[in-house]
Write a protein that binds this DNA or RNA. Structure first.
Lengths: 141, 141
DNA sequence: TTGCATTTTATAATTATTTTAATTTATTTT
DNA sequence: AAAATAAATTAAAATAATTATAAAATGCAA
């Protein structure tokens, strides 16, 4: 995705498309690693050395508020971010802690169907996210 | 659950059953609120005023390690704990941040079946946890 | 009981994140 | 275009959650 497209994304969300916001969102869109604010900061610093870590936090807050970015639930301490806001699930590796994406439309349909049929008393579900814990295996293991 | 039963749980896991561990685990077993370390500390302090917050953190780490307690994924900053380690899912309220339990064996079976049939290349799934985001509704709303 | 290992405690240190207030940048008004 | 206004960014300080440290207390084995 080029800068102009990222810029449009930000503008269309009703935010000022500042350089900082563009480079931060672009970096996040180029990563599938669900980085922390600090990891993103280190990514972006090369290209934009004047950037401050506060700005990364502020910008991510903005982007989350406008639903351009999602916070990723982790069991560990710190917050991670994901610019891929389409429906997908996560694989959590119990050994490395790595979080990978899992896309499966059939699974999404099954979950939608299930909760269309099974009411949860007192609760209106809006979004389903499956966390799959397990282990990555080496090739040939 | 009485103290003796909690004590056995701890001993059976291979841990020394100290008073602190007993009261902390007991308090957690009596809560369905997925408390933080600090919330637990405040619960337990009445009954056991000498208790230190560090001990709560240490004890919870121990209990997690021995799988008597699970960490609960949250989007906010701080860690939450759950002494109910049987298979269940969580309802996340987007308004209040409250996390409630959702039990459904049929859903568990559907998920088991799905991943028995659908291999994830390079990954061995061990545990499925569905996070259901939505809203709690008032009676009569 | 004596000795040893473990646990607990209080304190200090660390880390992630948020707040603050000043500065810079962008936008609107004149 | 210049001045006024608003918004965003920055560096620094503050806060909150958690972890590390080292001394004291506890519990168990010989």
């Amino acid at each position: 995705m080029n800068n102009a497209e990222v810029k449009d994304k930000i503008s269309n969300a009703g935010l000022k498309a500042t350089t900082q916001r563009i480079v931060i969102l672009k970096a996040l869109l180029e990563s599938r690693e669900h980085p922390t604010a600090e990891e993103l900061y280190n990514e972006v610093k090369d290209e934009y050395p004047a950037l401050s870590l506060s700005t990364v936090y502020n910008t991510l807050d903005c982007l989350v508020e406008k639903a351009l970015v999602k916070q990723v639930q982790t069991e560990g301490g710190n917050m991670r971010y994901d610019a891929f806001v389409d429906i997908h699930h996560h694989l959590y590796c119990s050994e490395s802690g790595k979080i990978s994406d899992y896309y499966n439309d059939e699974l999404n349909n099954i979950l939608e169907d299930f909760f269309a049929k099974h009411n949860i008393p007192g609760f209106i579900p809006e979004e389903f996210k499956l966390n799959i814990k397990g282990k990555f295996i080496e090739n040939g293991e």
